[in-house]
């Protein structure tokens, strides 16, 4: 059932990238500013398509929204120590891929509280890390990897240059070959004419 009514009883159907649909309460969905801007006043005639995100991600996002329906208005991220056990479990049970998907979906749906908590969690994760540790965490190539990559690229470029040179050489040869039959033709014709001339003169 989809409806523009504001009652928290109202359920909306959400469609994921797999084409699956599932229910989300109006109260939970209203935490999404994207939803509020797009559907709240005009309603939706069928499932609301959030088809850029898979079912697991959307369910996770709305699980958070359902849970925080009754929490007081958002007033900035809480300190780690102030997070409830439920919040901690919610974040801890996500693997890295899910975490990234949840951030992306939460960002698209513009769910302020969840986006902030996720972002703050990552910022906290980066605290006290030196550059090498930071590079590992944010999955940047290290200086050695960059050097190795550069070497590979240089090798590739050198190989490509060689191939290009060879190709140019081959093209040059082909040009000579292409020219050869003409010369041969001229020579053959010249020989024939010479032979004819000689035969005439002999006659």
């Amino acid at each position: 059932m989809t409806s523009p009514a504001s009652s928290s009883e109202v359920k909306y159907l959400i469609e994921s990238s797999e084409g699956n649909t599932f229910d989300v309460s109006g109260a939970a969905l209203r935490q999404s500013n994207t939803f509020n801007a797009m559907f709240l006043n005009i309603g939706a005639d069928g499932p609301i398509p959030f088809t850029d995100y898979n079912e697991a991600t959307l369910k996770k996002v709305f699980e958070y929204c359902e849970h925080s329906v009754n929490e007081e208005n958002y007033s900035g991220p809480k300190h780690q120590d102030d997070l409830s056990k439920w919040d901690l479990n919610f974040f801890n049970e996500m693997d890295q891929k899910m975490f990234i998907d949840v951030i992306n979906a939460s960002n698209f749906l513009d769910i302020e509280r969840l986006t902030s908590y996720c972002c703050e969690r990552i910022a906290r994760m980066l605290r006290g890390k030196n550059t090498q540790e930071m590079i590992k965490v944010i999955t940047l190539p290290t200086a050695e990897e960059l050097e190795a990559k550069q070497k590979v690229e240089e090798k590739k470029a050198a190989a490509a240059k060689k191939v290009a040179e060879k190709a140019a050489e081959t093209a040059e040869k082909t040009e000579t070959l292409e020219e050869l039959p003409v010369q041969q033709l001229v020579q053959t014709t010249r020989n024939k004419l010479t032979r004819k001339y000689l035969s005439f003169s002999n006659e």
């Binding site: 951030i103 994760m125 944010i138 999955t139």
Partner: peptide, 15 residues
Amino acid sequence: MTSPFPLLHVPYLPQ
């Protein structure tokens, strides 16, 4: 969460 996180590949706003 201690696993790697590709910070430079997340969308502009959350980044």
